[in-house]
Design a protein around this nucleic acid. Structure first.
Length: 440
RNA sequence: CGGGGCGUAGCUCAGCUUGGCUAGAGCGCGCGGUUCGGGACCGCGAGGUCGGCAGUUCAAAUCUGCCCGCCCCGACCA
């Protein structure tokens, strides 16, 4: 059980303040051992989700602040999911926008001539939306200057106005452990202006790193490093020096896949599980040490693996339901079979139902007995709503010692009461065998 | 924290724009009867500080102000 003080819980079970999750760590003596543990866990997770029967994908993702590598998420596709993913239909690459690597775009030199830099007054216009509206230019013509503190030094990251910077990519390019947005004080110091007017021209103390996409841009608009000031017709090289070019922007649908160049498409999903390699990031500071064959003290090499149990139930509800209610996959159903006593006042029916209920339990099945004093219709509707996969109906055929065994919502077969347990077993096996391929 | 919406019977909601009938419906609940394998039917009945406080008015569920609670969007985020 886990608790988290979410500012705003949402999406029902997907993001609540209280939830359950399965958490696991592996401890190895070296990276080779870690790789084996990780691969075993990856395989186990595949088997878990195949058994549940949920359609899912495995996507490259980031450590979300924990740090690590070989970070992968198990994702259930779902329009109500809270996370965006990108997919290449040509080569089946899945990744989050922050980490999705893009094929190098052709960077041809822009051929229009450079115009002289022109300062423009932009009183109070700080955001991209405000500046584009004020100057009457599209966001692609703007260049955003984002000030970061990376392991203590200041960096100015440049991306096109209509793009999002990927902190994951920036962190990797810089090779730093800690990357945080510059605070107000830092921004004002290096830009010499209030927050919202930073630009690359004349910026102090900051290394300028630019998204490779900007190579093809000319005469763009940037912050003017002065209060209420922007600059038109800014050009790299002529007006400021780029110390490094790199792919910094988050991917969006339509961008080319790094593996095969085909356009990526986007989808929403629920993050079901997350695995990654931690290495010695925590074992070193915590002094989780072992002695190797030679008697040397070495930090344990760790891996981290989690499954969001509660939100997996949310994904199950999204995928396994019909107009009448839920259809639990057997692997995660709260009960495997429900015995429906149609007329609780009929002694013959009652005895038969209670007998089968006990037999099912004796046989090791999770059984539920519906014997409330309700009308038959109510019981059938509720049984379908709850969605227990197996149903045994004990009703008008009880006098002949017969009952009906069926899958929730499906056609039934009439069997002798003594055959009921075996019939339920067969039925549940069939249900278990329902599988989806990971790429479905 | 910013934006939007909603608080009326146990539940879901109508009524509010344009103030005025005894504040309504469906479901649920109680009693009587019929029915009894896919959320039955008939009859009778109980059930309300209209979220709270204050104001305007001859008169407030309805208009105004403040407060409280819940939901949605955003910011944020192992």
């Amino acid at each position: 059980m886990k608790f988290r003080d979410e500012l705003r819980p949402r999406g029902g079970l997907v993001r609540a303040r209280e939830f359950t999750m399965k958490d696991a760590y592996s401890f190895d003596r070296d990276n080779g051992g870690l790789d084996r543990s990780y691969d075993a866990m990856l395989d186990a997770y595949h088997r878990i989700f195949r058994r549940v029967g949920l359609p899912y994908h495995v996507a490259d993702s980031s450590g979300e602040g924990i740090g690590g590598w070989d970070t992968r998420e198990f994702v259930s596709v779902c329009d109500t999911g809270e996370t965006s993913y990108l997919h290449c239909q040509a080569c089946d690459y899945h990744a989050t926008p922050e980490v999705a690597v893009l094929a190098k775009t052709e960077t041809r030199e822009p051929d229009d001539p450079m115009q002289p830099v022109e300062p423009v007054e932009t009183p109070g216009q700080r955001t991209i939306e405000q500046v584009t509206a004020f100057l009457g230019v599209s966001a692609e013509r703007l260049v955003k200057t984002l000030i970061y503190t990376a392991d203590g030094r200041v960096v100015a990251a440049l991306v096109r106005g209509d793009r999002e910077l990927s902190e994951d990519k920036l962190k990797i390019v810089l090779g730093v452990k800690e990357l945080v947005m510059g605070d107000r004080e830092t921004i004002e110091r290096v830009s010499g202006a209030p927050v919202g007017f930073a630009g690359p021209v004349g910026i102090k103390e900051a290394e300028i790193i630019a998204d490779e996409e900007l190579r093809g841009e000319r005469n763009f608009v940037t912050g003017g490093n002065g209060a209420d000031l922007h600059l038109r017709n800014v050009n790299w090289d002529r007006d400021f020096e780029v110390s490094r070019w790199a792919q910094l922007r988050s991917a969006v649908p339509g961008d080319p896949c790094a593996r095969c160049g085909a356009p990526l498409t986007g989808y929403q999903g629920i993050e079901l599980a997350h695995i990654f390699k931690l290495g010695t990031k925590y074992s070193e500071p915590l002094e989780a040490i072992y002695l190797d064959d030679a008697g040397h003290r070495k930090p344990i090499v760790m891996g981290c693996y989690g499954i969001g149990t509660t939100r997996t139930m949310a994904a199950v509800a999204e995928h396994f339901r019909d107009d009448a209610g839920l259809l639990w996959p057997v692997a995660v159903a709260p009960f495997e079979v429900e015995v429906i006593l149609v007329n609780q006042d009929d002694h013959q029916q009652r005895e038969l139902a209670e007998g089968i209920y006990r037999d099912l339990q004796t046989a090791g099945l999770d059984a539920l007995l519906e014997d409330r004093p309700e009308r038959p219709g109510v019981k059938f509707k509720d049984a379908d709503l709850i969605g227990v996969p197996g149903q045994v109906v004990v009703g008008r055929l009880a006098g002949e010692g017969k009952v009906e065994v069926r899958r929730r919502g499906g056609d039934g077969e009439t069997v002798a009461a003594g055959e009921a347990v075996a019939a339920v077993r067969r039925l549940l096996e069939k249900n278990v065998s329902r599988r989806f391929s990971p790429s479905e």
